[in-house]
Design a protein around this nucleic acid. Structure first.
Length: 135
DNA sequence: GCCAACGTTGGC
DNA sequence: GCCAACGTTGGC
């Protein structure tokens, strides 16, 4: 199983929206690197949900329920979507500042590649973030 | 609201 | 193929 993190500006799509819908197509991504990451997602992979711009914190966990398919928001066949299902809301959201303070999380793209919206995490990085949400 | 970082576009 | 111009993202 692989681990990922996706970002969303809550003004366009928030964790609350995700909880209401339960499942949602993760579409509209127009960046090749992010797209390539989505193509590597497998059913059952864990995906952390991060609020960018407002909040700047990891707020919950989702699961991949459908592997990549044509992005329904465009005819352009370069772009794909996956389906994500809300799984768990963090008791304590993990803020970016906490991630920056954590030595084992220095290598996650959230810090070094701030504009990438879909990124891989190692199992260790994933577990550390989940642990931080339970403190 | 500002601005840095980055990706994309288009002229040459 | 280079690079300037431009648009967007996202942290602060």
């Amino acid at each position: 199983m692989a681990y990922w993190l996706v970002k969303s500006d809550p003004k366009s799509y928030s964790w609350e929206d995700m909880l209401k819908e339960k499942k949602t197509p993760w579409d509209g991504v127009r960046n090749y690197q992010a797209r390539n990451n989505m193509k590597d997602m497998k059913k059952g992979d864990k995906v952390l949900f991060y609020h960018s711009v407002q909040g700047t914190e990891v707020v919950g966990v989702t699961t991949v329920t459908k592997e990549f398919f044509q992005d329904p928001t465009t005819e352009d066949d370069r772009w794909v979507a996956v389906e994500l299902k809300a799984e768990d809301t963090f008791g304590d959201p993990v803020p970016l500042s906490k991630i920056k303070e954590t030595e084992e999380l220095q290598d996650i793209p959230l810090i070094k590649q701030s504009r990438l919206s879909v990124m891989p995490l190692t199992e260790k990085q994933y577990n550390i973030i989940v642990d931080l949400s339970r403190q």
